[in-house]
């Protein structure tokens, strides 16, 4: 973990992130190619933001990394393991995914949402799972709402429960699929600040986002995708202040 934060790290512990390497990955829906020869390398403990217009394949790529959608060819390396050769369930235990629409379990409380996979996948006892779940909920500022069901929580709170749920599995890499796109504007910041905090604390993160402010402030690397390809990548300064390609310039002029 060589991440040096410009900001003082808050109370929490550091995460032990792993390197994520996507090499020449191609993905398709049936006959339609959605991801064409994409390579992205995320160093341990760093954050990479993927930006780009809708339909550029950003979300599909994330789903390829944890194989909710199986890549057609290419390589995905997690630490030094070939992710496409691992059993999907084993891979997914090591990769956390946060969805745009939270996908919390509506008939479970916040605590049960976090505890479910701990019990079922990590085989923890009920007490142990609930202890860990509560600790993770505390981490995202929701300890007091641990007995609420999702519909009694705001969108922002729901998304933070979803993040706690993913964190509880102690993933080596966290994937965020437009985690704030479905939120009311005033609730976005709470989720983004939580994500920034995770980045600070050494989590390896691959973040698909439309929040350019977040990408600029938090990302170590920004990747611009369009039509299933990586068009341009670099540091936030390079991407936002000195865009090279026409597509990126056009995109930035539309969103900024």
């Amino acid at each position: 973990m060589t991440y040096t934060s410009p900001l003082p790290v808050t109370d929490g512990r550091f995460y032990e992130g792993s390197r994520l390497k996507i090499e020449n990955v191609e993905m398709a829906y049936g006959d339609i190619d959605v991801i064409r020869d994409v390579s992205i390398s995320v160093e341990p403990g760093t954050t990479t933001c993927i930006i780009g217009p809708s339909g550029s394949g950003k979300s599909t790529l994330l789903r390829g990394v944890n194989r909710l959608h199986e890549p057609k060819c290419g390589r995905v390396l997690l630490a030094d393991d070939d992710a496409l050769a691992l059993k999907p369930d084993v891979l997914r235990r090591r990769v956390g995914l946060v969805f745009q629409h939270f996908n919390l379990f509506p008939d479970h409380t916040a605590l049960q949402n976090v505890a479910l996979a701990l019990r079922n996948v990590k085989r923890m006892s009920k007490g142990e799972a609930e202890r860990v779940a509560l600790a993770r909920l505390t981490e995202v500022g929701l300890a007091e709402r641990s007995d609420h069901r999702p519909r009694d929580l705001s969108g922002g709170q729901q998304q933070r429960v979803a993040i706690a749920r993913a964190l509880a599995m102690e993933p080596e890499v966290m994937l965020f699929d437009e985690a704030t796109s479905a939120l009311d504007p005033e609730l976005v910041k709470g989720v983004l600040s939580l994500m920034a905090e995770l980045a600070q604390r050494g989590m390896t993160m691959l973040v698909v986002t439309h929040e350019m402010g977040f990408a600029r402030r938090v990302a170590d690397q920004v990747v611009f995708m369009d039509e299933g390809r990586v068009v341009e990548s670099g540091t936030p300064d390079e991407i936002f202040d000195n865009p090279q390609s026409d597509r990126l310039q056009l995109f930035l002029s539309e969103v900024l």
């Binding site: 900001l7 005033e186 910041k189 709470g190 989720v191 600040s193 920034a196």
Partner: peptide
């Protein structure tokens, strides 16, 4: 709710 989170990491809560 904004307050709920900003107590945790004041340094980051003022992001634009």
């Amino acid at each position: 709710e904004v307050a709920e989170r900003s107590t945790l990491s004041p340094a980051l809560a003022h992001g634009e």
